[in-house]
Design a protein around this nucleic acid. Sequence first.
RNA 1: GCCCCGGUAGCUCAGCGGAUUAGAGCAAUGGGCUUCUAUCCCACAGGUCGGGGGUUCGAUUCCCUCCCGGGGUACCA
Length: 552
Amino acid sequence: MDEEIKKIVKELFDIDVAPSVSIPEEQFGDVATNVAMQLAKQLGQNPRDIADQIATKLQNAPFVSEVSVAGPGFINIKLTDASLIEQAYSAPKKILEGKKVLVEYSDPNPFKPLHAGHLYTTLVGDVLARLVQNAGAETIRLNFGGDVGMHVGKTMWAVVKTLGGEDAAAVQALPVDTLGEWMGARYVEGNNAYEDDEQAQAEIREVNKHVYQLHNDNDHESTFAQIYWYLRDQSYEFFKKLYTELQVVEFDRFMPESEVANPGLEAVKAHIGDVFTESEGAVIFEGEQYGLHTRVFINKEGLPTYEAKDVGLSLTKWNDYHFDESIIITATEQAQYMEVVIKAIEQFAPEPAHKTRHLTHGVVKLSGGVKMSSRKGNILSAFDILQAARDAGEISGQATQENVMLAAVKYALVKNRLGGDVVYDPKESIATEGNSGPYLQYAHARARSILRKSETRNSKLETNQKLEHGERTLVRKMAEYSSAVELATRELAPHHICTYLYELAQTFNRFYENNKVIGDDREAIRLSLVTLYTDILKKGLTLLGITAPEKM
RNA sequence: GCCCCGGUAGCUCAGCGGAUUAGAGCAAUGGGCUUCUAUCCCACAGGUCGGGGGUUCGAUUCCCUCCCGGGGUACCA
């Protein structure tokens, strides 16, 4: 459509425009454009006159059935049924065909509790990766994680203290299914001690160094190393179990910090003087020159901070994949931090820096305002969210099926625009009424049951088929699928898919209410529409990582 | 202090340069099942789009400023 308008404007006025087109309310037409207003100033003409000229030309376009000019110069276009049908059957454009795209998300830290935020990035990241893959990109899913660093020092310090010494056998004897919580509790102890007790702080710093040393020496033998590797492996097992439970696509690669710490350290050291500077015994990047914060990349102990590790991560990604685009999604609290890191990298490796896109998401809160204290360690965990959804399902009736529970959680977390905080309401998320995952699942199951019951043979709709009003409304909505997916992909904004699918399901449910399928004169035609609808709904849900059940 | 993100109906959120009624859902009120799954649908109600300026033919949308909430601001991640 916009191509056609562009062509006409070029012919009429010899101007290149990117016309903004939108989908108006159905009563006005199928497509609307305000291109006449865009041009009015440039041409020094009345927008209404410009609109009339364009409208006249547009009238002759093959896919247009009616054109009208409204208000100050809006052009409302009604499309032919044939073009709507064709559009409804068309797949989204492969806008990333031939591109190699890295998507980094989830990023849980071994030795630390898995909080609700990890669940959020895991699910949103999974959808983002599905979107870029669906758009034709060679997609590589990466998972970064801190298996070295201060938090590990804190946990390991408390572990040794709790065990009353370096006792590998004692750690291995701990019950495996509660080991995650056990480590979480140790992290909290270590963290509190670090803040309150200078003696402990010094000890923790030593433990931290010890952990780095262990990696450099490739030490798997010492008792300390045995404890470390056991807990690290168990952490990763635990994460993998969660991913399986969540039914997210498998990661292509885990990139623990220990792997990228040294490359990062070396890169930073190699650029002391031209990019980084030494200050108070540390190595910093003076972000202030660029209106950003100044940050420490190597601390005075000579250890890489998270900054240097992120440098190492970026360079490793670049060297190993030579990507066209690298997407990273983390919490908003890292937004300005990441800007500094990328700016620093840009100074000596501009290409990967320019091709990196950092997305951020807000905090997940449980509605009802449960008080959380990170100090006590009663943070909202990933499992709390899942359990809250299950519990809410129990209340409203039969035991919640796992795939409905997942649909509820995934949809609730993805339906909001990225950036703001999410208030998770378990009851609302699991309800089959309202804008929820289960509503869409039910909408799918309901439509599928029509197809099961009909004995008429079902075929693709002919484009020359004349549509009745209710049918046309449904087709018109189905025709929007591709542009919704393209928009979500281009903007890396998965919530657009949710908004669209919900509108689609509502449109269908209205159609279902007013139009009989089985036994109607138009059964064959309507069956084709229902088939197309269930296909689109299922494809959309699949992009969200949500199952489309046959029955509910 | 400076910087980033947010503030749209009672609640949770879409919309982020356009008109004709600023849209949904939940909650509230009133309807619709002998009929393809009523886990659904319909109706009605609910808004100085945080305040104030500005740009524009036109601002919830762009710019400035202030207020409120969250986050960041050198050796945590």
